Simulated scan of single mutants.
Amino acid sequence: MPDLILHHYATSPFSEKLRLVLGYKKLAWKSVIIPNIAPKPDLVALTGGYRRTPVLQIGADIYCDTSLICDVLEHVAPLPSLYPEPGKGLERVVAQWGDTTLFWASMAYSISGKGTADLFAKAPPEAAKAFGEDRKAMSVNMVRHRPGDAAAAYKSYLRRMSDMLDDTDYLVGAYPTVADFACYHALWFTRKRTPSMAGILQITPAVSDWMDRMAAIGHGTMETFDAAQALAVAAANTPHTLLSDSTFQDEHGIPLGTRVTVAAESFGPEPSEGELMAATRTHYTLRRTDPRAGTVHVHFPRIGYTLRKVEA
Score class of each variant (00 low, 15 high):
G89R: 03
E74K: 00
D71N: 13
L56S: 12
E74M: 01
G89P: 01
G59L: 04
L73K: 14
Q57S: 12
L79T: 13
P86Y: 04
E91D: 15
E74P: 02
I58C: 06
E91T: 13
P84V: 02
S67G: 14
D71L: 09
H75V: 15
L56G: 10
E85L: 07
P78V: 05
A60K: 12
P86Q: 02
S67T: 11
P86C: 02
E74C: 00
G89L: 04
V55G: 09
Y63W: 07
L79I: 04
Q57W: 14
Y63S: 03
E74L: 00
K88D: 11
L79Q: 14
I58F: 08
E74H: 01
T53Q: 00
D65T: 10
T66M: 01
V72K: 03
Y83H: 15
I58S: 07
E85D: 08
H75S: 11
P54S: 14
A60I: 01
I58W: 05
I62G: 03
I62M: 01
L90R: 15
L82W: 02
L56R: 05
V72I: 11
Q57I: 10
S81L: 00
G89N: 05
C70H: 15
C64V: 13
P84N: 08
T66C: 05
S67M: 13
C64D: 08
R52T: 10
K88R: 15
I58H: 09
D71I: 01
R52V: 05
G59P: 01
I69H: 11
R51I: 05
L79N: 12
E85C: 04
G87Q: 15
K88C: 06
A60M: 05
S67I: 08
D61S: 08
I69K: 07
V76Y: 06
E91V: 03
T53W: 00
E85K: 10
Q57C: 14
R52Y: 07
G59E: 00
A60L: 02
P84I: 03
V72H: 10
P86V: 00
G87Y: 14
G89Q: 07
G59S: 06
G87R: 15
A60C: 04
L90I: 12
G89D: 07
P80D: 02
K88E: 13
D65S: 09
Y83D: 10
G89E: 03
I69Y: 08
R51N: 12
H75M: 07
K88F: 10
Y83T: 11
I62W: 03
A77R: 11
H75P: 01
V76P: 04
E91L: 04
Y63D: 03
E85P: 03
T66K: 03
Y63M: 04
A60H: 08
T53E: 00
C70F: 05
C70V: 07
S81D: 03
Q57Y: 15
L68E: 04
V76H: 08
P78H: 07
T66D: 02
P86A: 05
V72W: 07
R52C: 12
L90Q: 13
P86I: 00
E91M: 12
